[in-house]
Design a protein around this nucleic acid. Structure first.
Length: 875
RNA sequence: AGGCGCUUAGCUCAGUCGGUAGAGCAUCACCUUCACACGGUGGGGGUCAGCGGUUCGAGUCCGCUAGCGCCUACCA
């Protein structure tokens, strides 16, 4: 072999080259074969609104880790990518673009405007693919989908018609959340509540034929123009006599009835009198129905006042109207007082505009029949949500779910497949009928489009060709795992479960992993206005995709992730470490992987058995943690093993042999072979987390597979476990550390060398220490190691992991600091010993505690006693 | 208002089945040693938010209190 790594780690020199190679070789594309164990996952389709942010980097890194891991584990793996048309959001950004040129969508007209959005979509879905590519996402681009694709649109129409025929989709006049800016209805979950300091206006409504007045309180005085009643509680003695009479509505000078409504009115709250505006408040709407009050729409779809509000208000913006109403009330002397009032205001989450409750004709999905089986799927364990605490939230929402408003008065989206004729007939069908089936008149299609989430809900199967029975569906559906942000649990996950169960009879996935939000170092939400946004592509350009991916993985426990530059820097140092350790290893490795042959376990030395045993433990840990979606634990285990066991200790321990300072050719050959083995396995273990750097290095090791990404993932192997080697090497490490510690504490420099005495407790152990004396000499920088001898008086004595050691220093005054330290050490040990003594004297402890715990305590007690005895001699 | 979660080293967080606390970063001291100064070696640093309970033993289990976060619903 002998293709060397460049001296410096420069990810930009190979990342894009490698990705192109993987894609060209078809490594991302699975075979369509039912006979093979498969693993499939669909991407949460990013909105085509713009570039991907760090949250996308997280969710796609986590998916890629699982996907690459499963692929290496031998599964026929599909990761299906794509994008979402994102109705309102995309329409908004394109509108904003047009506004820069001074054009409104209305000037352009629906057809032209939609054309513009398609142009936007083409540009941005390409950009999104590029970004995912730079991250290393091993998605099968040959299967890329878009929610407005013809195939997906057909699935949408099919589902709509079917649900309509089954009576689960209906069209009705109802009070909905209306966004005056977007001029569309939105569903309940798209409304976000913002806490706001508002005013509570108290207004007197005179009672007709009396000098009494009813004082009402409202946060929205402009709606009084649409009041058609005043309500009191039927049992409220203050107002009982007024029920059935009329009040005179100020400004409008309208007679409105005083009604009794025990549901709307809380006697204890305020004055106990409520103004009723059936057209602009959800509760008033219902109260209006109950009391036969007329509806009077005073606010139009664009948020301006209607003619019905009165000539002087017509055309006025609702907030201007508010000011005007207040001024007029004040003039008329009926404005009693204005209180400050902290309340929650519903706004449209996408554009921050105050929601206007509005009566309008919309399409709805009757949700309960869909929700019930979806609840059961999670309750029965058919679908498992991780972290599990989210299941409670899921149940809570699903059990209190309201019908889903699915129609939107937008231009960008799936048009509702309903067709109207001039005679008022409506036909719902997948394709446009040539004429009205009832009367033969020409038909026009419904102009409303569907909520984006309606098509997203079908994503796991619509992307595979459903409703046709395709080979992809047969092989890859249902999918296995869904990885997404918790913020779309209701929007997306719940709806996929409902639709999947309804239309395929199967849960669309069996596992859901919900990741947290990426925040900045201070735990603040990232936002453009705060200027704390981290662009994933900037990071990739700066430190490489691997460092970013590893940082995200090591931070992902399921909770929110505080991400800062310093953290990324820390893990980019780790990638650099991997590069350099590999560079060192490759200077010594003399065989290619495919020619290396199996390792003869019988000939292995203790240090080699030790590192292989540690590697095996790490292998088990990584597989176990990945199974549980503990990306943090899995990546941490690798970090610790590679850096602090392999680099810090094994490589240092192997150097004397590799560099010819110790042992013979056979030893060196063995060390080289094990070095190759550990590097090979480490790279494979690391690959899902760091696909680029691992393959760049691994390809130079000369394995049989064309890339590490399709090499087998290591699994635990019992033959590699070696507790005895771990115990002995651990003792050697502790001794080395102890000597280094003493050197530093006593003020010696690394050049000063001492003589070490070590005692094994058995012949075997003594032989071990003799055999590995060279390690102690090299790594602890000693002149000599004496096994089993008597140290001179005044040598520093200690007991390390059960072995007695003594260090002889050249003449040197012990510092006051060192004396202090020894004293503290003794004090600490004595304290621990005292507590152990007390514990072991306690009959209840000895009787009740498990035998193992008691024995551990006894062992520790003996150890402490021995150690204290030695430490005291040092004083 | 209801539900869920959090509070552990200066910072960000792990901590499994209860057995006297760990990591990374930061910090301090020493070291330009033949893979790496994006490095090496060593050190310092914690009343586990507070109170009470269960237990031989509580960061861990139970209850209460305080502070913070999120979700759902929303009172005019």
């Amino acid at each position: 072999m002998k293709e060397e790594l460049s001296t410096r780690y420069e990810p930009s020199t190979f990342e894009q080259r490698l990705y192109a190679f993987w894609e060209r070789e078809g490594f991302f594309t699975p075979v369509v074969d039912r006979g093979r164990p498969k693993f499939s996952i669909v991407i949460p389709p990013p909105n085509v609104t713009g570039r991907l942010h760090i949250g996308h980097a997280l969710v796609n890194t986590l998916q890629d880790i699982i996907v690459r891991w499963k692929r290496m584990c031998g599964f026929n793996t599909l990761w299906l990518p794509g994008t979402d048309h994102a109705g309102i959001a995309t329409q908004m950004v394109v509108e904003r673009e047009l506004a820069k040129q001074g054009i409104s969508r209305f000037e352009l007209g629906r057809e032209k405007f939609v054309e513009r959005i398609w142009e936007w979509k083409e540009q941005h879905s390409t950009e999104i693919k590029d970004q995912l590519t730079r991250l290393g996402a091993s998605a099968d681009w040959t299967r890329e989908r878009f929610t407005l694709d013809e195939g997906l649109s057909r699935a949408v129409r099919y589902v709509f018609v079917k649900l309509y025929e089954d009576g689960l989709i209906y069209r009705d006049l109802a009070m909905v959340n209306w966004c005056p800016r977007c001029r569309t209805a939105i569903s309940d979950i798209e409304v976000e509540f913002r806490e706001r300091n508002g005013k509570l206006y108290h207004i007197d409504y005179p009672v007709e034929g009396s000098d009494r007045r009813l004082t009402v309180a409202t946060t929205r005085p402009e709606t009084m123009l649409g009041d058609t009643g005043v309500a009191v509680h039927p049992d409220d003695e203050r107002y009982q006599d007024l029920i059935g009479k009329h009040a005179l509505l100020p400004i409008a000078n309208r007679r409105i009835p005083i009604v009794a409504d025990p549901i709307l009115v809380d006697r204890e709250f305020g004055t106990g009198v409520v103004k009723v505006t059936p057209s602009h408040d959800k509760n008033d709407y219902e109260a209006g129905m109950r009391n036969n009050l007329p509806q009077l729409q005073v606010i139009a779809e664009d948020g301006r006042m209607t003619e019905a509000a009165g000539a002087e208000f017509a055309g006025l913006d609702r907030f201007d109207a508010r000011r005007k109403v207040v001024a007029m009330l004040h003039e008329q002397g009926v404005l009693v007082k204005i209180d400050d009032h902290l309340h929650n205001v519903g706004v449209h989450g996408k554009c921050d505009t105050d929601i206007e409750p509005m009566i309008s004709r919309q399409w709805f999905v009757k949700i309960e029949p869909l929700a019930t089986p979806a609840i059961e799927a999670v309750r029965s364990g058919a679908i498992r949500i991780t972290p599990q605490s989210w299941e409670a939230t899921y149940f809570n929402w699903m059990e209190n779910i309201h019908d889903w408003t699915i129609s939107r008065q937008l231009w960008w989206g799936h048009r509702i497949p309903a067709f109207h004729c001039a005679n008022g007939h409506m036909t719902v069908s997948m394709d446009e009928p040539p004429s009205c089936p009832q009367c033969g008149a020409p038909v026009t299609q419904e102009t409303d489009v569907l909520d984006t989430w309606f098509s997203s809900a079908l994503w796991p199967f619509s992307t595979m060709g459903w409703p046709d029975e395709t080979p992809d569906l047969d092989v890859f559906y249902p999918t296995d795992t869904l990885i997404t942000g918790f913020d779309i649990l209701f929007f997306w996950v719940a709806r996929m479960i409902m639709m999947g169960l309804r239309f395929t009879g199967k849960a669309p996935f069996t596992q859901v992993f919900l990741n947290g939000l990426v925040r900045d170092e201070q735990g603040q939400k990232m936002s453009k206005t705060k200027g704390n946004v981290i662009d994933p592509l900037d990071v990739v350009n700066e430190v490489g995709a691997d460092a970013l991916r590893f940082t995200l993985a090591v931070s992902a426990s399921g909770r929110d992730i505080p991400l800062g530059k310093s953290r990324i820097q820390g893990y980019s140092a780790f990638v650099n470490k991997i590069w350099n350790a590999s560079r060192f290893a490759m200077m010594h490795i003399d065989k290619e992987l495919k020619d290396a042959g199996p390792i003869e376990r019988d000939g292995l030395r203790t240090v080699e058995r030790w590192i292989l045993s540690r590697l095996d433990a790490t292998t088990r840990e990584v597989n176990k943690q990945l199974s549980a979606f503990r990306f943090d634990e899995a990546s941490n285990a690798l970090y610790h093993f590679f850096w602090h066991e392999f680099c810090d200790w094994y490589i240092e321990m192997a150097k004397p042999v590799l560099l010819g300072r110790h042992g013979g050719d056979a030893d060196r050959a063995l060390a080289r072979r094990v070095l190759l083995e550990v590097l090979d396995r480490s790279l494979r273990l690391l690959h899902p987390f760091m696909p680029f750097v691992t393959d760049e290095i691994w390809l130079k090791l000369g394995g049989v597979e064309p890339s590490v990404m399709i090499a087998p993932y290591p699994i635990g192997e019992e033959v590699l476990e070696d507790p005895d080697a771990e115990r002995l090497v651990s003792a050697v490490k502790a001794m080395i550390t102890a000597v280094r510690n003493l050197r530093a504490e006593r003020g010696f420099t690394p050049k000063d060398r001492f003589k070490l005495y070590v005692s094994g407790n058995t012949d075997r152990e003594s032989n071990f220490f003799r055999e590995y004396a060279y390690l102690l000499i090299e790594l602890a920088r000693l002149t000599e190691v004496v096994v089993g001898g008597e140290p001179a008086a005044g040598a520093h004595q200690d007991v390390i992991e059960g072995f007695h050691i003594a260090v002889e220093f050249p003449e040197k005054v012990i510092s006051q600091e060192q004396i202090e330290r020894t004293r503290r050490e003794i004090e600490k040990s004595e304290k621990e010993l005292a507590s152990l003594d007390a514990k072991l004297m306690n009959e209840q402890f000895v009787r009740n505690a498990p035998a193992q715990i008691v024995q551990n305590a006894q062992t520790r007690q003996a150890e402490l006693r021995a150690r204290l005895e030695k430490l005291k001699q040092n004083q």
